[in-house]
Structure formats: structure tokens, C-alpha cells
Design a protein around this nucleic acid. Structure first.
Lengths: 147, 147
DNA sequence: TATCAAGTGGGAAAAAGTGGGAAATATAAG
DNA sequence: CTTATATTTCCCACTTTTTCCCACTTGATA
């Protein structure tokens, strides 16, 4: 399972180290796409397989209008890139994705179960602050509900 | 069952000894996450399995299409870490969790049935004082009620 | 007092992360 | 088509962090 947050540098060559703890699960090749809320999504090839199948499945219950769905698919597929890690676990972030989330200097690499998210450090801490407030109610469940 | 409180030092390498009495039940690998009221939760892998299954929408492969779900998953998984005990029962507290609860110097390690909580010593004694007061009131109420 | 278990501290080795140069490839110009 | 220039890829080296191991201390026990 991909969990935890790591702050890594993105260098002048657009390289970012994947946390060592993620590497085995991610594999050599990964898919990177624009995400939601100003971050990027990274999927394993396997996970991407699932996701893309679901997204393009006309039987799905996404309750999108067709035009919306087409546009969303353009968004997800049109800007997805397959990237390969180098020998020491770094990936190359394509320029248009980097620009899209205003990435420079430090990036937050966050494991979210089956996917990895890439944030600019600032955006990540902002999002954290917001979510923390919202999540207090939910978090209560975490402590007491579970048996 | 995990019970009792222990005050242990967190050293400059962010290591904390798990109380000897907890070690067997916790196992070698544990999951540590932010908890409620400014403490950290430690779960066994088994317990974590339950918690995460229950709280994340794992039945839905496209849970990332829902904003609430996205943020909750970030909250759940993004700030969790799997850590392994060293040969003599210490764990490494990730920096971002240590910072979150203002941990330094001494930590209170508290068994709460099937999880362990980690507090900064000060926060723990404050919390204890509050709870104790509440408990007195509660007991009094119970005593006078039952007649 | 000797012994054992638990907790603490620290040095050395290994791993992870970062930076940069050289080789290979691609792009553009003549 | 060839040469020159820029970009990308590959590899090596440095630095920092993490991990592993050993030793000391304390307190309880026999």
C-alpha cells in the first residue's frame, strides 16, 4: 500500500526521486496524469489499466453527460504520460504537467493507497490544513467506530 | 490487550522504545497515523487493515472521482506510515508526524485496548487532568443518580 | 552482590537523495 | 546531406539520512 508523505526536490532537469518505499510497488514504468485539486496522479501500469477501463466504459454509472465524459477523458488520457524511472528511482516530470501545478523547488510526494500524488509543497500544506479541519468528524470514526 | 501508560524518551534520531509489554501484540511492523486530540495512533497491521477497509471506499475503483473521498483518502493514507521496529523494540517516528504533535524530549506511550497512542508528555498530562476532572463529575453524577 | 531485562545513546555501515558532466539522441541550419 | 546546436539520457560522485549493531545505565530480582 502506498502511504505517507515525502518532500523531495525537483531539480533543473525536472527530475524527482520517488520515495524508496514506493519504488517496489510502483514498478519501473508508471503513468503520470493531471490530477484533481492541483496535483498530479501517478498510477502503476496495472492500476492505470483498471482506471482507464472504467473511465472509458460507456456502461459505467459516472452520471456524466456524454460531452462531459468526453471532455473528462480528454483531460485524463490526452495528458497522461508513461514515464520510466531511472536507475536510482527518479522520474522525469513532463513540462506541461509541471507547469500545470506550479511545481518548482520542492514537491510533496504523497501515497494515497493505490496511487501517488505529486503536489507543490505549498499547495500540499494548504490542502492539508483545509482537510484537517473538515476531517475531524470523520477521524472520530477512526478511533471509536472500528472494531 | 494494550493497556497502561509509559513515559519514554524520543531521542535525536526520532526513536522511541515501545514498552516491552506491547511488543508481542504489536508485531514487527506497525502503522502510525495522526490521531485525535493531538496524539498519534499506532495500529497493528491487522487492525489497520480493518480500519482502512472500513473507512475508505475500497469497493469503488474510481473513488478519486469524488472530492470528499479524495480528501478523506489523503487524510487517511497520506499521513500514515508503515514502520518497522528495530531489534530492541524501538520505532522511528516520521518527522511530519513528530512535528504534528509537537513531540520532543519525552513521549507518553499509552495502550488503549487495540491501539497505542503517542503523546507529547505535556499534552498527555494536560489531557489526563481534564479527563480526570470530567470523570469525577461523572462518577458523582452516577453515584447520586443511582439511588 | 550478581544477574537479567528494559531503556538509552552513539558510532559505523549502508541506503537514499541530490547534483552535474559526458555520451547519445534529436533538432535546426547551412 | 552534413554540420552545428540543443536536448535528453545515462552514469558517476558527493552529501545526508537511515539502519544496524554494540555498549552503557538503571532498576528489579534472587
Amino acid at each position: 500500500m502506498l502511504i505517507g508523505e515525502y518532500i523531495h526536490i525537483i531539480d533543473e532537469k525536472n527530475r524527482v526521486s520517488m520515495p524508496a518505499k514506493f519504488r517496489k510497488e510502483l514498478g519501473k514504468k508508471i503513468i503520470i496524469t493531471p490530477g484533481l485539486e492541483n496535483c498530479l496522479f501517478i498510477f502503476t501500469l496495472k492500476e492505470w489499466e483498471k482506471v482507464s477501463k472504467k473511465l472509458s466504459d460507456s456502461e459505467n454509472d459516472l452520471s456524466f453527460l456524454k460531452a462531459d465524459q468526453r471532455n473528462f477523458n480528454r483531460y485524463m488520457f490526452g495528458r497522461a504520460a508513461e514515464v520510466e524511472m531511472d536507475a536510482i528511482g527518479r522520474i522525469l516530470v513532463p513540462d506541461f504537467l509541471k507547469t500545470r501545478i506550479g511545481l518548482k523547488g520542492s514537491a510533496a510526494i504523497v501515497g494515497v493507497k493505490d496511487r501517488v500524488e505529486v503536489w507543490s509543497e505549498e499547495a500540499w500544506s494548504e490542502n492539508k490544513a483545509i482537510v484537517e479541519k473538515q476531517a475531524e468528524g470523520l477521524a472520530e470514526k477512526l478511533g471509536s467506530d472500528v472494531k
